[in-house]
């Protein structure tokens, strides 16, 4: 039976279960150490939660196509190209399965954060919005000091970042609190995307266009991912990462649980688009091998292997639905 994914601000039970679930996954030993993943430094245990951090980073570092084939815009196995939405759909599905398992609740659906509604607020109010309340995701800081992911150096059970990236694009071990910098004046953006901007993205057709990357001049995917901007700023999905800041900036952004709420909303908007336009995807298999990894029947960089392709995840009605489409 399909579960229903709900707005985290409209259902305190789902909100509390999400927080409980990610904490349980953070505390669960995967049986692997950092050395098993080639992460430099003394080997330390890797939690199930942190497997997803490593997965996201690794997919991002996998260029599609790989050198020496031409790929000037840096299209990778999960971003900067057509596969952005299907790849993250699989990632969310797999996290949702793990949350259901540790919560012992098959009816649990991953919640979403309707960031457009927060973005409709005055910029100063956005930093104080309900999503950042102590009973929800908590606020910003370095480390975060309020809410369920606040850091307490004396409490080993408090939320800790254990794997992070460095400037060379490598993973390294660490042990510190979560970092957020809402609307950083140096490295951020002043406000979140609005409901109107989300609606505009969903109203675009087709799904994607050549060059199938960050330079695509039309299509829903490139706008929703956040690369098309008349003001030369990150937009939509990218803008949420950049606005939250801190651990949401680098390739290890799943370190912040808000990552999943952002992507669940992006997935909801994609589902809205498909309800309006049909379960269509581009490019198809007539496209060049240079687009391998982004075509409709190419395997996604994911554990299900060949059984997870963009085509296979276009219809997810057996797995979940949304309470409200965008």
């Amino acid at each position: 039976m399909a579960v229903t994914r709900k707005n985290i601000l409209n259902d305190s039970s789902v909100r509390d279960k999400f927080i409980q679930g990610v904490k349980l996954l953070k505390a669960e030993d995967s049986g692997k150490t950092t050395a098993d993943f080639g992460i430099a430094g003394d080997p330390t245990p890797v939690s199930t939660y942190d497997l997803f951090v490593i997965w996201h980073h690794r997919a991002m570092m996998q260029l599609t196509p790989a050198p020496p084939r031409p790929n000037p815009t840096g299209r990778n196995a999960a971003h900067r190209g057509s596969v952005f939405l299907p790849w993250h759909r699989v990632m969310l599905l797999m996290l949702e399965r793990n949350l259901q398992r540790v919560l012992n609740d098959d009816s649990f659906g991953l919640p979403y954060w309707d960031w457009g509604a927060t973005g409709d607020l005055d910029p100063d109010q956005q930093k104080q919005a309900a999503i950042w309340g102590a009973d929800c995701l908590g606020g910003d800081g370095n480390p975060v000091q309020s809410g369920p992911f606040a850091f307490n150096p004396d409490d080993p059970a408090s939320w800790r970042v254990r794997v992070e990236g460095n400037s060379a694009g490598e993973l390294v071990g660490t042990d510190r609190g979560l970092w957020r910098v809402f609307a950083s004046s140096d490295d951020g953006v002043p406000d979140l995307p609005t409901t109107q901007q989300a609606t505009d993205a969903v109203g675009l057709t087709p799904y994607d266009v050549a060059q199938w990357d960050v330079a695509s001049s039309d299509g829903m995917r490139n706008l929703l991912e956040g690369w098309r901007s008349p003001r030369s700023e990150p937009e939509h999905h990218n803008r949420v990462h950049v606005w939250v800041g801190g651990d949401m900036w680098p390739s290890t952004s799943p370190n912040d649980p808000v990552f999943y709420l952002n992507h669940c909303n992006v997935d909801r908007l994609w589902e809205t688009w498909m309800q309006q336009n049909g379960r269509q995807y581009l490019p198809d298999m007539t496209a060049s091998d240079d687009l391998m990894g982004h075509r409709i029947d190419d395997p996604l960089a994911s554990p299900p292997g060949a059984s997870a392709t963009p085509r296979e995840v276009l219809d997810i009605s057996e797995n979940y639905t949304y309470d409200v489409l965008g």
């Binding site: 669960e28 995967s30 049986g31 692997k32 098993d36 993943f37 890797v46 199930t48 497997l51 997803f52 490593i54 997965w55 690794r58 599905l93 797999m94 399965r97 793990n98 398992r101 994911s302 554990p303 299900p304 292997g305 997870a308």
Partner: peptide, 11 residues
């Protein structure tokens, strides 16, 4: 595929 063992082996 979502089992931690399967995910960690894949990674």
């Amino acid at each position: 595929a979502a089992e931690p063992t399967a995910l960690s082996e894949y990674l």
